[in-house]
């Protein structure tokens, strides 16, 4: 059977699902960063008036979903599917947010690449005519991630300068069949790739091979060259990971990629003590929502390749000496002129 909608690992949507609207929520540190003022909601309180960090992340994520509903004057019952995820065990934040909104829900885990999963699946549902409106949401929180993946916050261990800082934030995206000026035209679903990076402080480095592979696969499947994209935007490789990806892609024959950047490398300023930059599900989500989607809408950019990256480790496997596999999903976002 000939598959009309898929070439290689890349799906070609026939109806071009749209990112109609989005809402971003971030914490204080992110609000003080170079992109600070553009986020929809900046909380000065990383506890979001709750008594535990997990509840704080749930509150934050709920705010993002409610935010996009309010922005578009929709009620939860207008939404056909909720697709969400986060970094915590049992993706508990997304589950509890879905408990609040009472809509058909699929919980997703792709580590920091969860945004790619949710946007891809949302687009697929719309393209398959299974609904009209889907909300994709993700969150991460510095305190919840740190206590699950690392050590207590106040513990005085020394981190190397290449360690990244988990972004406290959440963003929700309303996907619709039509309307809005940003369309998702293609998506390349990534393959898990493990090149044996073992340093859990070097998640950026661990994700670089997967990002490179997904970018190369996308270019091959779509027949494009890197210059056909105004921007190739990776999720949370950080400054070091971004530079490493540039180096690797040059070796793979793509030349100097001036149009490659990374959300994690952009969210914090060098003086914010955030190491190599931001990481976590929220990194790509909030930067896309508040910085790059508006630029697409305005026409500063016409076509970007969003490459959402994830490091697929857990604290048990890394203690047992396992290496860190990476994954990256790519989505082609285009400015639509109707």
């Amino acid at each position: 059977m000939i598959n009309l909608k898929k070439t290689g690992d890349t799906v070609f949507f026939s109806t071009t699902p749209r990112i109609f609207s989005s809402f971003s929520v971030v914490g204080k540190k992110e609000g003080r960063g170079p992109l600070g003022s553009i986020f929809d909601y900046i909380s000065q309180d990383s506890l979001f008036s709750q008594n535990t960090w997990e509840k704080a992340e749930m509150e934050m994520s709920k705010k993002a979903v409610q935010g996009v509903l309010d922005k578009t004057n929709l009620m939860p019952e207008d939404i056909d599917f909720l697709l969400g995820g986060d970094l915590l065990n049992q993706i508990v934040v997304a589950n509890f947010v879905a408990r609040h909104f009472q809509r058909p829900y699929l919980g997703l885990f792709g580590a920091c690449a969860t945004l790619g999963e949710s946007l891809f699946l949302g687009s697929t549902l719309l393209d398959g005519d299974f609904g009209d409106q889907v909300i994709a949401f993700v969150s991460s929180h510095y305190q919840t991630a740190e206590r699950q993946y690392r050590t207590p916050i106040e513990y005085g261990d020394q981190y190397p300068p290449w360690k990244q800082w988990t972004v406290t934030g959440s963003a929700a995206f309303l996907l619709q069949k039509e309307g809005g000026s940003v369309g998702i035209t293609q998506a390349t679903v990534g393959t898990v790739l493990d090149w044996g990076i073992i340093d859990t402080n070097d998640l950026g480095g661990a994700m670089v091979p997967a990002a490179a592979q997904t970018i190369l696969t996308n270019l091959e499947d779509t027949g494009r060259s890197p210059g056909d994209y105004d921007l190739i935007l990776t999720g949370d490789l950080g400054i070091r990971g971004r530079d490493l990806l540039r180096k690797l892609l040059k070796k793979e024959g793509l030349g100097e990629l001036d149009n490659l950047n990374d959300c994690g490398a952009r969210i914090f300023a060098p003086d914010q003590k955030a190491g190599s930059g931001g990481s976590g599900c929220a990194t790509s989500a909030v930067v896309l929502s508040s910085y790059y989607l508006p630029r697409l809408e305005k026409g500063d950019l016409n076509r970007i390749l969003l490459v959402v990256t994830g490091a697929l480790l857990n604290p048990t496997t890394s203690l047992q000496g396992e290496t860190i596999p990476g994954i990256a999903h790519a989505l082609v976002l285009e400015r639509m002129v109707d």
Partner: peptide
Amino acid sequence: MPRTLKTEAEEFRQMAQPQNRT
């Protein structure tokens, strides 16, 4: 099938060695 990279994993691990150890 995903595109296979020409670079070897070992070569990449060398590239990825942090340069700013102190």
